[in-house]
Design a protein around this nucleic acid. Sequence first.
DNA 1: GCTCGATTTGACCATTTGGTCAGGTTTTTC
DNA 2: GAAAAACCTGACCAAATGGTCAAATCGAGC
Lengths: 243, 243
Amino acid sequence: MSGTDRLKGRAQARIPDRTQKSAIRAENERVILKAAEEVFAQSGFRGATTGMIADRAGIPKANLHYYFPTKEVLYRRVVEHIFNIWLEAANSFDESDDPVEALTSYIAKKMDISRAHPMGSKVWANEILHKAPVIQDYLETTLREWTASRVAVIERWIASGRIAPIDPQYLLYMIWATTQHYADFNHQIDTLNGGRPLSDAQFEEAKRTVTGIILAGIGAVPPAGLAAAGPPRDAAARNGAAR
Amino acid sequence: MSGTDRLKGRAQARIPDRTQKSAIRAENERVILKAAEEVFAQSGFRGATTGMIADRAGIPKANLHYYFPTKEVLYRRVVEHIFNIWLEAANSFDESDDPVEALTSYIAKKMDISRAHPMGSKVWANEILHKAPVIQDYLETTLREWTASRVAVIERWIASGRIAPIDPQYLLYMIWATTQHYADFNHQIDTLNGGRPLSDAQFEEAKRTVTGIILAGIGAVPPAGLAAAGPPRDAAARNGAAR
DNA sequence: GCTCGATTTGACCATTTGGTCAGGTTTTTC
DNA sequence: GAAAAACCTGACCAAATGGTCAAATCGAGC
């Protein structure tokens, strides 16, 4: 489980330094990784068997082991994939220096990821739940740096009086928790929604609600529906429409 | 995994109807359940082995199977235990009909549970992540009813203008997600906190931040630190302050 | 201090599972 | 078009694991 030691397997050294992998290999790896993501999400690292993954990918187990020497290597690849998607979303945080715009776009992006990649998010959640045996190094480097720099951004917002003085760290956790909840706990959400997944409209409403509560919660914008006395556009419009 | 069929095992019928179980049995079950909660939280249902649980409980594996015939029975007992704690917290939602008081106390209670029972929360998260193979029935009955009734309460708050018109369902999800995050993702939080767990003071700050953002977010209270100028209540004052 | 049910446990078993391997087939390269 | 490399796969193996069992020990009531 250490993850630092590698290349002890035999197949590893067989790949020279060529950057170009054959089309067959690329396609098969893609199929296997997709299957692996689903099975790992559904069953966890331990619960997933290479047999299950191979079946779902439509290939014999021995073939899977031809491309990925061990279950652990395969799992690590899946987790790295998720983390890259997560990082991509992270960029939308910097789209603007305005808190309303930046947070709106970041939250929307994270919500969209939860909807588009629920499996990946679950794998990530599982990994953290089990103390990140495979990706602890990412947490301590990339994630730590990203978080620190965004905390700084939020602190500037506070200093310039654009949002209320809340602790940035806990605001970020709140955003992460809330957005990922729609992926990780989607089974619970579906069950409470009468056993059906949220419709597109419902999901958009959830997104609006989440964004609205957070923005209003940090004083970046007035709470929806209240403050109706003000000017025509902005909050007043939301009053009647919502719900 | 269905959960509806039981009593097919042989050991089940051995327990008559007596309500009183021997002191030895009670104590051993307690120790085993505690160990099981930790191991299931750390490794998931599949990743946990009865051997690991027995070791942690300090008894031979065969002895564990004397008290709990199968791993599944043991797991179910653990999950039921968590669910009961969760339900207990749920009551604090009804402590007051005032949104500020009710939500403050509910959020505080849920945060405290995350801190006091992180293992239990993780087991629950794991269970939902894997589509609730064991507790689907709870989701469809108790949880569904509880949620519906609290949605109604929140709707009354909205109707009487005490909070902004947000969708109650998504507010609840937000509270659940955020509070449970401190248990389920505590490893990530610890890592971002320099590898150390949150101190009591930090945790209280987190609790305040979460409560503050949510209450302000739904317009139950002005955002901390802002809106200090205007009239005491009335959201209109917040309008200009923001942004 | 005897009896009988409750408890304890080492040894054991069947199944599952990650991973290997030898030998075959296909694709690429020259 | 043939040699080399890449790819494929049925059969197999050692280790791990959930669960069983028979025999031993303990404990409360008489």
